[in-house]
Design a binder for these strands. Sequence first.
DNA 1: ACTTGACCTTACTGTTACAGGAAGGTTTAT
DNA 2: ATAAACCTTCCTGTAACAGTAAGGTCAAGT
Lengths: 140, 140
Amino acid sequence: MSESIKRAMKISQLAKVTNVASKTIRYYEDIGLLPTAYRNDNGYREYSASDVERLVFIRRCRELKIPLEQIKTLIAVQLDQKSSCQEVDTLIEQQLDKVRKTIAELTLLEQTLHTLATSCPNDRVGDCQILKNLQQEKIS
Amino acid sequence: MSESIKRAMKISQLAKVTNVASKTIRYYEDIGLLPTAYRNDNGYREYSASDVERLVFIRRCRELKIPLEQIKTLIAVQLDQKSSCQEVDTLIEQQLDKVRKTIAELTLLEQTLHTLATSCPNDRVGDCQILKNLQQEKIS
DNA sequence: ACTTGACCTTACTGTTACAGGAAGGTTTAT
DNA sequence: ATAAACCTTCCTGTAACAGTAAGGTCAAGT
């Protein structure tokens, strides 16, 4: 009775231990990211330890901004013991590339916005250098 | 006759000179970012030089990732000659802040992904360190 | 006159990863 | 008995468009 091993828990329990909203858990089941949950007599979903593991895995992937579709792939690879983890490598590399590209883009953007933000010493809209700059094709 | 000043142009012309898709132009009109276009006899939209200016302004703002709702605000300020450009300043500053925060987040993400990407020397999924790491609450 | 191709129109669907809310059933505590 | 706190499904909304369908228009060529 004093055991902390939960053999079955309801959705809000799972939500709490994994830090994923109940709403999101149902959504993941809808799109097939989580297996169809077992239902008890009253129709409530019931979860076990393996669901916790799976969901923590998904949450970690989401923290890394890995799209749900790719998480599906990762789970499939994971379940297929005879597959190589080359696919996992590649996927993570691609994700890293994407993040780096986005950082590069945003860094340029930051420059432009900074230039823009410091370009207007005026007070009246008619003279606003920011607005004038935005009217040009490129910011000089 | 040899004047290059277009008094009227159709949507695909406007699209070409501003580098904004026709589809997008119609969408902007739908949501009230562009004024309701004048229609000629056959029901086609007709545009003039001021529409070009407006649309270039919007496109520049979008390049800076300013949300459409905020672009609406900028245009309103712009049209109200008695307003101060303080609001413009603030908006650009906020946008800059947002970009900087995103860069900071993505830089952390990059670190984590890099650590993860280089963590697995194995070939078989069963031993894959990446997958094991993703199963943990935090990556060590 | 007729057809072909390049335009134009509206309207509906799909994208991503959920969040909010309605309407109703169940369980638990007082 | 009743109220709080759960659970369920289903529908809508988000941001900023892109794709597609179904149909009208216009200019050029045969």
